[in-house]
Amino acid sequence: MTKLYLVPGANGPLRADGAQFDARRWRWGEAAALPETAQAVDTLTALRAALALPGPRVPIGVIGPREASAQEVATAFELGRELAALGFVVVTGGLTGVMEAASHGASDAGGLTVGLLPGEDWRAANAFVSLPLATGIGKARNAVIAQASRALVAVGGGYGTLTEIAYGLHFDKPVLTLGAAPAADGAEACANVRDALERLATRLLHGAVPQVS
């Protein structure tokens, strides 16, 4: 795995060997050799640095059932809180259960939450959605959530969640799962929220680093 570095005081502080991270386009470009001041960092620290740079906010979808178990609610709350603390926008279906818990956690951390609602009334959103968007397209909004998100994290769920996972994989998005979320080829099962965040950091940063010969 490519090592990632921070360069103190640099305009483009997140670096890899021969590459510099562009937060406005969320991609890597070629760069000169690493300066002596470069400090190797773990992937999660690099992700936090990337999200702190000037540029567009990055949306992460949190998906799961309306009728969630107590454990799923607790996991979704922790996940939403940690995603927002890193600097992500948390995107959900805007209703109850896992969607509400993730929005609640993100809201408590001062984050921006977006709810893509299936119906035509934005007021149907749970109380922790900052930006409710009434799509009016019913369950087809699952595809919108998958397409609008840079990656998806599923917390539990059944067939509805499975459709969102399938859409995410179809759209070539990283898809991570927690708890009893449906299994699907291409989705990565995670042991806990910390594991999910580290895998997310790896998928978002390492996959796009140019290979230097």
Rank of each mutant, 00 (worst) to 15 (best):
N142A: 09
N142S: 13
A74G: 03
G87K: 04
T113F: 05
S69R: 03
L131F: 11
A124L: 12
R66W: 00
A124T: 13
E100I: 00
A102I: 09
R81M: 09
E78P: 06
M99C: 09
G94C: 11
L131Q: 14
V91W: 07
A109H: 05
A134D: 01
G87Q: 05
A143S: 14
V58D: 02
A85V: 01
D121L: 13
A124I: 01
A102C: 08
S103A: 15
G94D: 08
L117N: 09
P59D: 06
F128D: 13
G138N: 03
G119M: 13
L112W: 07
A74W: 00
D121T: 13
E72F: 00
V62C: 11
G136M: 09
A124D: 14
G94S: 12
G115T: 05
I63P: 13
E67C: 03
E100L: 08
R123E: 06
V144P: 14
G138D: 03
E78S: 15
L131V: 15
P118G: 07
R123L: 08
V62Y: 05
A76F: 03
V73S: 06
R123Y: 03
T92E: 07
H104M: 12
S103D: 14
V62N: 11
I137T: 03
A109D: 09
W122H: 15
F128K: 05
M99V: 09
V144S: 15
